[in-house]
């Protein structure tokens, strides 16, 4: 039984096709990462999934009683709006103080409850946003470039936390990221998006490099993948002819 199914989703805005023919299903407690270059429609896809945007075409089916916890890419807080972390955690649903404290401390942010939201650093805000999303006991946790503004170590810690959360809550996780090497280690499935789904599958299948297991191998892939994506929809042959057939095979067979 899938939590969420997208069928043939298309989004057209001002005559520009943002997404075309996107179909995917999310299973229980699956960690799925969407990767793709800038402007590939990653954030648009997330906004459709959380219900902030109606697709121009296609159908979206959410499982009954599916609650979604959403961690946005960033949170602009108007300086005129006073808001403590504790108050923010209880929006829009009232929460008991103990519940809030527990959620904050499991995110490693227990000393922040009385702080103003606008005074937090990028990393602290990220922890708070995640803690708030988890308070909703989500069946699906959606993260939009949640590691932005975190340094390498903080990012690694962040993904370890996500993995713990998945185990504890049994929720599915859908995230968007730029950083292939970190993300791939932490995902069950990687979806390569560039207007449409180019390829998807287990990370090791998507990344064909034999050196996949080593972090560095993935980084080389990283560069290749971005290079290829910047060309129009994977159609152009790669300069390195040796790589091309392998890559194609991976895209078609994986997942």
């Amino acid at each position: 039984m899938s939590l969420l199914t997208l069928e043939d989703i298309g989004v057209v805005r001002n005559g520009n096709v943002i997404l075309n023919d996107v179909s995917l299903a999310l299973g229980q407690s699956e960690i799925v990462t969407i990767v793709g270059p800038n402007g590939s429609g990653k954030s648009t896809l997330l906004r459709i999934i959380i219900g902030a945007l109606e697709p121009s075409r296609g159908r979206i089916t959410r499982g009954e009683h599916l609650t979604i916890g959403y961690v946005p890419q960033r949170l602009q807080i108007d300086p005129t709006l006073p808001m403590t972390v504790a108050r923010f955690m209880a929006l829009p649903h009232r929460r008991r103080r103990g519940e809030i404290e527990a959620a904050l401390s499991s995110a490693g942010a227990n000393d922040l409850a009385r702080q103003q939201l606008s005074a937090l650093s990028g990393g602290q805000l990220q922890k708070v946003l995640l803690a708030r999303a988890l308070l909703e006991r989500p069946g699906l946790l959606v993260l939009d470039e949640a590691n932005q503004g975190l340094d390498h170590r903080a990012t690694a810690e962040f993904y370890r936390h996500i993995d713990r959360v998945r185990t504890e809550l049994g929720c599915a996780v859908l995230m968007v990221s730029h950083e292939l090497h970190v993300v791939m280690k932490a995902s069950d499935r990687v979806i390569c998006l560039n207007g449409t789904i180019c390829c998807q599958g287990r990370p090791e299948n998507v990344a064909t490099s034999p050196a996949w297991q080593s972090l560095f191998g993935i980084e080389e892939r990283d560069a290749v993948a971005f290079y290829r994506h910047s060309e129009s929809g994977h159609a152009e042959p790669d300069n390195d002819a040796r790589e091309t057939p392998q890559e194609k095979r991976a895209c078609h067979h994986a997942g």
Partner: peptide, 16 residues
């Protein structure tokens, strides 16, 4: 609460 969360971030409101 609904007004507040919509003011803070519309997408966050949607997801809730």
């Amino acid at each position: 609460s609904g007004l507040l969360i919509s003011t803070l971030n519309p997408d966050l409101a949607r997801a809730s």
